[in-house]
């Protein structure tokens, strides 16, 4: 069976060279327009690491933003579940996460299974429609997306970020727009289990190589592991995955 390579697709993660150098094994996304790192050399150890300290690249996954006065109205019309509170994230039926960055801006992320009707709906919007004051943003290209899995991350991120990310200060569903290693970043603690937390880290895609190497260096003293999408999905745990019905 021929190996799937990022180069088989036009759309590639900003760090696909680094991932290949680390020995990632790729799988095509369900949408078929990119390859994502599915696992490395020890899937069992990777699944275990996801409950402790693990890092995955989810940059090729679908991701869109929407901004403008009518953003919340549009989301309600699409049946998204959320409360109109800024800097909060909500899991969506049908898959994925909706993060509200302000009263007029939202960011939708698909899960590792690629399912997010909300992202698809945003992507289908024309760039500008007269009368609709809600404009799609190409967050899939402007931002990298990394998944940080495991309860050790707040301690590791304390060497990179001046925001208190421990559960008491940064609870389930919290969003922080801040600076990490001197680069602007969005941090989300996915709604779910405090014992097996999952964070999404998003930021300037041009800085992806730099941020990835900062995270690797910060993880090293704590024996963290690189993992792929397979370690984050389908293990039945309520908080680790971005899969369906993760609440």
């Amino acid at each position: 069976m021929e190996q799937v390579r990022p180069q088989s697709f036009a759309r590639r993660s900003p760090i696909h060279h680094a991932l290949q150098a680390e020995g990632a094994v790729f799988a095509p996304l369900p949408g078929g327009d990119a390859a994502v790192a599915a696992h490395y050399d020890d899937p069992a150890a990777e699944r275990a690491a996801a409950g402790r300290l693990a890092l995955a690249d989810l940059s090729p996954l679908p991701r869109m933003g929407l901004k403008g006065r009518d953003t919340f109205d549009w989301l309600r019309a699409e049946g998204a579940s959320f409360e109109p509170v800024p800097n909060r994230a909500f899991a969506q039926d049908g898959g994925g996460l909706l993060a509200l960055l302000s009263m007029g801006e939202a960011l939708a992320l698909a899960g590792p299974d690629g399912a997010s009707p909300l992202v698809a709906a945003m992507a289908a919007l024309p760039a500008a429609t007269p009368g609709r004051l809600a404009y799609p943003l190409p967050r899939g290209d402007s931002h990298y997306a990394f998944a940080l899995a495991g309860p050790l991350w707040p301690e590791v991120l304390a060497t990179l970020c001046g925001v208190d990310l421990r559960p008491a200060a940064f609870a389930s569903g919290a969003v922080a727009q801040t600076s990490l290693a001197r680069s602007n970043a969005i941090l989300v603690r996915h709604p779910g289990d405090d014992d097996k937390p999952l964070f999404s880290l998003l930021g300037d895609s041009a800085s992806a190589d730099y941020i990835w190497s900062c995270l690797r260096r910060a993880m090293a003293p704590h024996a963290g592991r690189l993992v792929g999408t397979e370690a984050l999905t389908g293990d039945g745990g309520s908080g680790t995955g971005l899969g369906k019905n993760a609440h």
Binding site: R12, A206, S207
Partner: peptide, 8 residues
């Protein structure tokens, strides 16, 4: 920490 930006 010295951020550096790369093009695609």
């Amino acid at each position: 920490f010295e951020p550096v930006r790369h093009t695609a």
